[in-house]
Amino acid sequence: MKSTRVLIVDDEPNIVISLEFLMKQQGYETATAADGRAALSEADRFRPDLVLLDITLPELDGFQVCEQLRAEHGSDMGVIMLTARGREAEVAKGLALGADAYVTKPFSTRDLVDTVHKLLGTPRCSGG
């Protein structure tokens, strides 16, 4: 059985470490990227099933990356946005751009894992 792949995008190394640990613990294959451009090229290469995407990134920000991902990969790729800014406008914007879910930092590890499960377990509807 082909294992599920998760791409982790964040410019804070420590956060990347924690996320990697969590995902690996669930048995997913992981890859990481520390800025927007790297994120896009990794997405092309790694072809993840899910992307954990921080908003505040150097080069391209998380919104632009999400937009691009949706444009290129449609709804094959799940996207969970992570951010320290939790304003409603940002949430709406993210969801409008095609994110499937939105998690504010600091997050609860259990909630995050649950969300991941939900996304990777449920069939995807088109359009997001």
Binding site: E12, N14, I15, S18, L19, F21, L22, Q25, T56, A84, R85, R87, K105, P106, F107, S108, T109, R110
Partner: peptide, 24 residues
């Protein structure tokens, strides 16, 4: 807004790792 963002970033790591250590 920036300050809030800056404060949350280290807090994220602190919380995440604390939870990991607690659960594992």
């Amino acid at each position: 807004s920036s300050v809030s963002h800056e404060l949350r970033t280290p807090l994220t790591s602190i919380r995440a790792f604390s939870e990991i250590l607690r659960d594992n």
